[in-house]
Simulated assay, not measured.
Amino acid sequence: MTKRNNLLIAILTLGVFAIINTEMGVIGILPLIADNFNVSISKAGLLVSLFALAIAVSGPIMPLLFSGINRKKVMLLVLGIFFLGNIVSMFTSSFAVLLIARVIPGFFQPIYCSLAFTAASASVSEKEAPKAVAKIMVGVSAGMVLGVPISSFIASTTSFTIAMSFFAMVNVIAFTVTLLFIPSMPVKERLSYRAQLSVLKKSIIWLSIIAVILMNGAVFGVYSYLAEYLKVVTNIPEKLISVVLLIYGVANIIGNIVAGKLLSKNAIKVVVSFLLTLGVVYTILFLIGKFTVPMALISLIWGILGGIGGNINQYWIASAAPEAPDFANGLFLTSANLGTTIGTSVCGLFITGMGTQYVVLGGLLFLILSVVSVLLRVHMFSFTKLHSK
């Protein structure tokens, strides 16, 4: 990669971090929000769930609508909207206004993330594309991992307003470096909406979407209850729970870095190995998850796999529709969010019906279905390639 490409990818990674930090960081200050705005914790949770819903709804639509506009202008627009949303959140005394200021940026989040994946891939050769995308994924993981503890620390030592100003500051930094250092990026070959939507006629794209929903469900269906698992099953102190969660998060970033190199060599082998290895990890988790030290080691390996899984999901859909990259990345974002929602709901049923320890069975169920969908997709790709000759 040239220095110019490295700078572009670094700025895109910062932009993704700024956006995901705004999305996830609020989780660390939900109790404070509930107190400040005099609402229940479940109502405060709408700031998270409605943001995610906005992403799921707008995922395939918004990147499609903005696919023909100069990419630098689109980046600045989205970062500007996130900055304004954070400014409004800092000073409002109305929970309804706070909710609106959170949800509106959520509809624009898929535009920036989709554009970041597309621009990173386009800046390098096809073989190097997974490595470039993996660097963007580092921004996603960092936003998810660092946003929660940083916002929680700032809020606990200062105030809610200062915590929200942190989100605004990161966004304005990303906006500034984009404005100063990213060159104009006009879309040279604009695809019509019809041409992009035509990828939905391909069976392989639907198999890819199903696979991503299942794979993300397998990871986040169990991970969403990791804190509860550590508390109830492993029975460790709350202070140690945060340490284990941090281990998982840092490992997730490592997984993103590793994934790019692996996918650029033999993608199919990586996908199948990922599913089988995660199955082994979940089986071990079920058997010895009661013990603290093994649980910390499991979380480390699990976190690395989670980072690899995120890259696999993006690659799996993007490679099924290379002729419409922006739309494909939008489909990826929607599929991943649906997978998280469905996986969390289904695995929650296992907890309700059988107990917290059995949440792992939900993850294994999603993994089995993932293997089936991946093999079907591989078979279809091979069949199509054979008959196209």
Rank of each mutant, 00 (worst) to 15 (best):
I20E: 06
L263T: 03
E238H: 15
L367I: 13
A142S: 12
L179Y: 15
V270R: 00
S49T: 15
I209E: 06
S125Q: 09
V88P: 02
S94W: 02
I342W: 02
M62N: 08
A142F: 02
P31M: 09
I268P: 13
V212A: 12
S94H: 02
G307R: 06
N70L: 08
K239I: 15
L30W: 03
L98W: 00
I111K: 08
A195H: 14
L64I: 05
N311T: 08
A336L: 15
Y193G: 04
K265M: 12
M90Y: 00
P63T: 10
S156G: 09
I136W: 03
F91E: 09
G80I: 01
G221C: 07
S123T: 09
F95N: 08
V78Y: 04
I104W: 04
I210R: 01
M354N: 11
I241F: 08
N216P: 13
Y193D: 03
I33K: 00
L262N: 02
V233L: 06
I351R: 10
L305H: 02
E126F: 05
T277P: 10
L386C: 14
G139F: 01
C113R: 14
N329F: 04
L300Y: 11
Y282D: 11
N171T: 04
S165W: 03
P237L: 05
L361Y: 13
V281C: 07
L98F: 04
I236T: 04
T118K: 12
V372A: 09
N6V: 10
L375I: 11
I100D: 05
V250H: 01
E238N: 11
F95M: 09
T292L: 15
F286G: 07
A320T: 01
A324D: 03
A227H: 05
Y282K: 08
S141H: 00
A227S: 15
S382E: 15
G307A: 03
Y225V: 09
R71M: 05
I162D: 10
A296T: 14
V172F: 09
P110A: 12
G260P: 01
S165M: 07
V372P: 04
S159D: 14
R102D: 02
A324G: 04
K131L: 01
L7F: 12
E323K: 14
S192C: 04
L361F: 13
I210V: 15
K231M: 14
L349I: 15
L98S: 00
S319H: 13
T176N: 06
G221L: 05
M144Y: 09
A336P: 07
F66W: 08
W302V: 06
G45F: 00
M295L: 14
G279E: 05
I205H: 01
S273R: 07
E126I: 11
V222R: 12
L369S: 04
M164C: 07
G28S: 13
S151H: 01
Y248N: 02
I41L: 14
H387V: 07
V271F: 03
Y112D: 05
I173F: 08
F37A: 02
F327T: 00
S152N: 09
C113A: 14
A227E: 14
G362T: 05
F327Q: 00
S184I: 06
P31T: 09
A44D: 07
S224K: 10
F167E: 00
A155H: 06
S121L: 04
E23G: 03
K135E: 04
